[in-house]
Design a protein around this nucleic acid. Structure first.
Lengths: 132, 132
DNA sequence: TTTAGTGCAAACGATTTGCAAAATA
DNA sequence: TATTTTGCAAATCGTTTGCACTAAA
């Protein structure tokens, strides 16, 4: 159960995630927070990311690249993965669209569907022309 | 560009994936193929899985558990992840449903959406009662 | 002063890779 | 024979963990 204690490092990690629109990896979080805490270790970053994700204060999103990304925006929303620059961008589907989808799935499936997660692929507006 | 040469091991791996309805990990593939080729190495399994996936003859699917799974069924379809037994099951949405979704996404997004992939979560029919 | 969090380095699990030997063409 | 694939072991990469020490309550 372990009572939670304040930590400046955790605060900084959380703050970074809340103020960026990026979906950084643990390593990226590490380099940013390192500017404020030059001695912080990667282990501390991982420990806090896991803790914050367990508390529901941030979200862990798994990307097609096999590195986990983190998101300070926890409202349910979807993601777009740019196959060119490999960034993850936010994409908002309406609640109706999402429940419609789950309902369609429930009709063809013999179990209990509780949620779903859709990731979209393609080229972001910056990469449209570029890339093969 | 390297010309492709036949290999009995690759054949066996592919055959296993085509005949199972499971979505095995590389390690599971390894133990199965080992029955036919007791000396096969895990490296060979990984190499062939990668090769077959690149050729489009099998699909690599990333599961919420951080181990990749492989699928011999390459027709576009969706997956359901049972949060109880952690198996991945097939789930078929109609093409209309999928393109409907992509279209809804395209309307709110300023890039080029090429495809999407939805994974559903919940309890499979075997686990409905069981598990918390 | 008690307990939780840190930095460090070692351990881990999944996957990849270099290399000499074996199989395929 | 020329080239690809194999088995093996070592290497890599992202992530986790044990431990002695520091910070928060």
């Amino acid at each position: 159960m372990a009572a939670l204690k304040y930590s400046r490092q955790r605060e900084s990690i959380k703050n970074y995630l809340l103020t960026t629109r990026e979906h950084p990896s643990a390593d990226t979080v590490y380099s940013h927070v390192k500017e404020e805490f030059p001695n912080i270790s990667l282990g501390t970053v991982y420990r806090n990311l896991k803790l914050l994700a367990d508390l529901g204060e941030i979200a862990k999103i798994s990307s097609p690249d096999s590195v986990d990304r983190f998101d300070g925006f926890v409202q349910p929303h979807n993601h777009f993965f740019c196959t060119c620059c490999r960034r993850i961008l936010d994409l908002d589907l309406s609640m109706e669209e999402i429940s419609r989808l789950n309902q369609a799935a429930a009709e063809t499936f013999d179990g209990q569907i509780e949620s779903s997660n859709t990731i979209f692929y393609g080229k972001c507006s910056d990469c449209k022309g570029t890339c093969s």
